[in-house]
Design a protein around this nucleic acid. Structure first.
Lengths: 254, 254
DNA sequence: GCTCGCGGTCGACAATGTCGAACCTGATCG
DNA sequence: CGATCAGGTTCGACATTGTCGACCGCGAGC
């Protein structure tokens, strides 16, 4: 593959860098992180600023992401077929299960949340769309890992960061779980991501069988799991049903 | 200003182009729109694809925005001070007024919605964050225009697109309204953007007086306006109060 | 089966972005 | 109060880098 454009890749790397830490970053920090001379980094930043992908704090001189990205991000959502076709089923699942619903897909070694429905009775809403969740500690992530051999391999090669006492941290244990996910057709997790929280998820497939995303519910452990701390079969059924419904919705239509 | 990086500007233009029409665009269409040779456009697109800013439909070969942009967009929101400092006051305003609340700022000749609170009693509403609204037909936009001379001048020079029978379409009429906004300190609009809908907005300022955004409510005409089809004074008061509160919140703190 | 339109490829050319040293400004500190 | 430092910014020579347009291969439609 000839000629990936250097400056654009560098610009993208900068935006990614600025997205991490969600704070303000200085030029020196940026140029050091990417191993670029200050002058070069400055030129790229100034260009990104011109197109409003980046803003600069007038007083401190530090850089942060720009407003144009917000619009691009939501434009992506509008065009995203997985999301648009799954919204109705996500609502249905939320109503049926009484739990919060998320739809995720793989992005860059994590789960990108492309849709989020709050728990029906809950008002306090932290909007989760656009958030990135760990692959190895969420039900959504396990589903994505289970059906993507490459992704699974690279993930196990990397450090499995421990988020709670229950997080799976050894590659072997993760692989064992993924085998189970594949045979069952769904994944679950209890307090591996956040204490007191559990989740269940199932794969969304395009015609041909390729898994392109996952849909799942999450909530307090005692809502998701039965007394033996295993996922309640009725909820598993709901999630699987919704996943199949979305997959079918992706099959039909343009 | 020396050396805005050509390829990055072109890449940004492509992303903007893809964001419009929220559909799939072909290579030929893109290269024609930007006046670039196909080969060049292709190189840029392939690079954007590598960094997941762009995706390509496997079957049709057409291009669309990529998932990475969603994450960047929400990261922008996290870092946005205007938004984070105004969330609480937006909730308060929604509760007080009983109406839907939006916070907007200027982006690229339009109003970018950076925060959105649904009407308290209403559940089914479409999420408006990241949306772009016209400057001349919304209360939020009028506020931004009123306090930005440059923006106001360029906007009046462009076509004022008519959205309803009531939309202001002549530069002179718009200027008259903006003068009024400046003297009153708030703006309103009734059925100029959408039939049956009205809105009220007031400016958010940073220390020094510069207007950086606007906060406003919107809803059915009969909720916003009194029988003389003028904005209800109580609501105007609520909005102004909230705007001042947010401005103060921006002053204090880091 | 020919042609058109589409996305994709290739290689020569020089315009383009890169680089590093030097500059400026404001804050910090002896 | 001057020196020093750390930040962002500017500049110009160099050659790397992206650009360009002609050329493929393929599928759809006449």
């Amino acid at each position: 593959m000839p000629g990936p454009i250097q400056s654009i890749e560098r610009a993208a790397a900068m935006l990614r860098l600025l997205a991490r830490g969600s704070g303000h970053h200085g030029l020196a920090e940026i140029s050091a992180s990417l191993g670029l001379p200050k002058g070069t980094a400055h030129g790229i930043l100034r260009t990104l600023q011109r197109v409003e992908f980046v803003e600069q704090d007038q007083t401190t001189g530090r850089y942060r992401l720009g407003a144009a990205l917000l619009h691009l991000g939501t434009s992506y959502l509008d065009a995203n077929e997985l999301r648009s076709r799954s919204i109705n089923w996500a609502d249905t699942l939320a109503a049926r299960s009484g739990q919060e619903v998320r739809i995720g897909m793989h992005l860059d070694g994590a789960v990108l949340v492309v849709h989020h429905v709050f728990r029906p009775d809950d008002t306090m809403q932290t909007l989760g769309i656009g958030a990135m969740l760990p692959l190895h500690a969420t039900a959504l992530g396990k589903v994505l890992l289970a059906y993507d051999a490459d992704l699974s391999a690279t993930t196990r090669r990397r450090e499995l960061t421990s988020l709670t006492r229950r997080t799976i941290v050894t590659p072997a244990a993760l692989e064992r779980v993924l085998v189970q996910v594949r045979t069952r057709g769904w994944a679950s997790e209890a307090e591996e991501f956040m204490p007191g929280e559990a989740s269940i998820a199932a794969p969304i497939r395009v015609p041909g069988g390729l898994v392109v995303g996952a849909i799942g519910i999450s909530g307090a452990v005692d809502r998701i799991c039965d007394s033996a701390s295993r996922p309640k079969p009725a909820l598993v059924e709901d999630v699987s049903f919704a996943a199949d419904a979305v997959s079918r919705a992706l099959t039909t239509g343009s």
